[in-house]
């Protein structure tokens, strides 16, 4: 059993907004910072564009964790997208917990375009957290 756990590589979907987080992830690459290859970034125009249905779809298709990243409060290119995102993610986390999926598998964080180091740190920490949680119960 312990062998299985050691060889477990989490699949993580990271939704990144075009203006801050994706730029941050890009910068992490330019800065030659290391972060785990388990994280698959998907670029969307704004974190407010991330429909809660996308998050559910990711879990349905076997993601072990979903990371939602956007601009810091007040920095949103569309002024208020990230505030709405935070509200949605909060409700979604509670709903996931209610049906029996660990709410730590969903996380929202804010990364600016200049924070390549923060992106690498967030991605690494989240991957390690999911690795410790083990495979998603919905993974078929």
């Amino acid at each position: 059993m312990s062998d299985v756990k050691e060889s477990f590589e989490p699949k993580i979907i990271a939704f990144c907004c075009n203006w801050c987080s994706y730029a941050g992830a890009d910068l992490a690459g330019s800065m030659r910072l290391k972060y785990p290859p388990n994280v698959l970034p998907i670029r969307v125009m704004c974190s407010g564009r991330i429909s809660p249905h996308f998050i559910l779809k990711a879990f349905q298709k076997g993601a072990d964790g979903v990371l939602v990243t956007g601009c810091h409060y007040g920095d949103c290119h569309y002024i208020k997208g990230n505030y709405i995102t935070k509200r949605r993610v909060t409700i979604m986390k509670d709903l996931l917990k209610f049906i029996g999926i660990d709410s730590r598998r969903l996380k929202a964080d804010w990364v600016a375009g200049s924070e390549g180091d923060k992106w690498a740190r967030v991605a690494t920490e989240f991957t390690e957290e999911i690795r410790a949680l083990g495979p998603s119960p919905l993974r078929g």
Partner: peptide
């Protein structure tokens, strides 16, 4: 239907 997504989509939409 695919579960749980089918029911969760509706559940979240009801928020």
């Amino acid at each position: 239907p695919e579960i749980p997504i089918f029911h969760l989509i509706r559940a979240f939409h009801m928020a």
